[in-house]
Nucleic acid binder design. Structure first.
Length: 254
DNA sequence: ATGGTCGATAGTCGA
C-alpha cells in the first residue's frame, strides 16, 4: 500500500500537477494540505476519472485539507475532537485497516507572534487528540505538513534558522512528544542522501540553490514499523513549471 | 539587497 502527502498550495492552481502525479505514481491514498478552497468549489470532478474518491475539509482562501483514496475512506472525522478551531487543518479516516491522520499544522509565522502562540495551543490539542485515538487504534499513520523541521539535518542552514520558526526548541519538543506516544519518523528508518528536503521557499530561487527544509513528514505507529518498506520524497514536481513550494512525500507498506 | 514570490482575492493576508 502506497500512502502519500502533498502540500499543494492551492488545489485549483495545481490541478494539472496533482492529476499528472496521481496517474504516474498511483498511490492508494494521497493527503493534501493547503487546498485553499471552500468545499462547494473543490474540483471533485477532476479526480473521479482518475479512479479516486475525495474527502474534503476546506475553507475560503486559507488552509484546507483533503484525502484522495482508491477505495472508500471510513470513520471519517474532520477537525480535532474537543477543540473548536475555525481553521480547517485535519481529516482523519480509516483505509485498509490503517488510521490515516492528514494534518496541516499551523505555520506559526515567527517565534513569539500571536500565530506562534496559536501553533503551540493547537499542537497541545492535536497531541491530546492523538492520545485518545491511540486508545482504540494500533495501526496509525500521521502525515502532512508539520511545519516543524525535526532536526538540524533537515535544514539547509541550521545556524541561520537556529531558534527560528519551524526549527525552535518548543516546536521540536511538541514533535518529540508526539513521537513519544509511539510513532517514528518513517523517513529516518532508511538511509537517505544528504540535503533532502520537502519544502523550498518560492523566493530567492531557494529550490535551485537547494535551500530547503524537511517539514512534510509521515509518522507511523510501532505496529506499522516492520511493514514499512520505503519512505521518500519525490522532488520531480517541484522542478516543473508553476510548482507548489512543497514536494510530495511517500511511504510504501507491505 | 531587511527584499525576494506565490495563491486566493479583490485590500491585503498568509506562507
Amino acid at each position: 500500500m502506497k500512502i502519500a502527502s502533498w502540500n499543494v498550495n492551492g488545489i485549483r492552481a495545481r490541478l494539472d500537477h496533482v492529476s499528472d502525479w496521481l496517474q504516474i505514481n498511483q498511490p492508494d491514498v494521497l493527503t493534501l494540505q493547503e487546498t485553499k478552497v471552500m468545499d462547494e468549489m473543490f474540483p471533485l470532478d477532476a479526480f473521479k476519472p482518475l479512479g479516486y474518491q475525495v474527502n474534503i475539509y476546506g475553507q475560503k482562501s486559507y488552509n484546507g485539507v483533503a484525502v484522495l483514496t482508491k477505495k472508500p475512506l471510513t470513520e471519517i472525522k474532520k477537525g480535532i475532537s474537543g477543540f473548536k478551531d475555525d481553521q480547517t487543518r485535519v481529516i482523519t479516516g480509516t483505509y485498509n485497516g490503517v488510521l490515516i491522520i492528514n494534518v496541516y499544522v499551523p505555520n506559526g509565522q515567527s517565534v513569539g507572534s500571536e500565530k506562534f502562540d496559536y501553533k503551540m495551543r493547537w499542537l497541545k490539542h492535536f497531541y491530546a487528540y492523538l492520545q485518545t485515538l491511540l486508545k482504540t487504534h494500533q495501526k496509525i499513520v500521521i502525515l502532512g505538513d508539520f511545519n516543524i523541521a525535526p532536526a538540524d539535518i533537515d535544514v539547509h542552514d541550521p545556524e541561520l534558522w537556529k531558534n527560528k520558526v519551524l526549527c525552535s526548541e518548543n516546536e521540536r519538543e511538541w514533535l518529540n512528544q508526539i513521537l513519544g506516544l509511539g510513532f517514528v519518523d518513517s523517513f529516518r528508518l532508511f538511509e537517505q542522501q544528504e540535503r533532502l528536503y520537502s519544502w523550498w521557499d518560492y523566493r530567492a530561487a531557494a529550490y535551485r540553490r537547494k535551500m530547503g527544509m524537511r517539514i512534510d513528514l509521515i509518522l507511523i505507529s510501532e505496529a506499522l514499523k516492520k511493514g514499512c518498506m520505503k519512505s521518500y520524497i519525490d522532488e520531480t514536481p517541484r522542478g516543473q513549471d508553476k510548482p507548489s513550494d512543497h514536494a510530495p512525500v511517500l511511504i510504501e507498506l507491505s
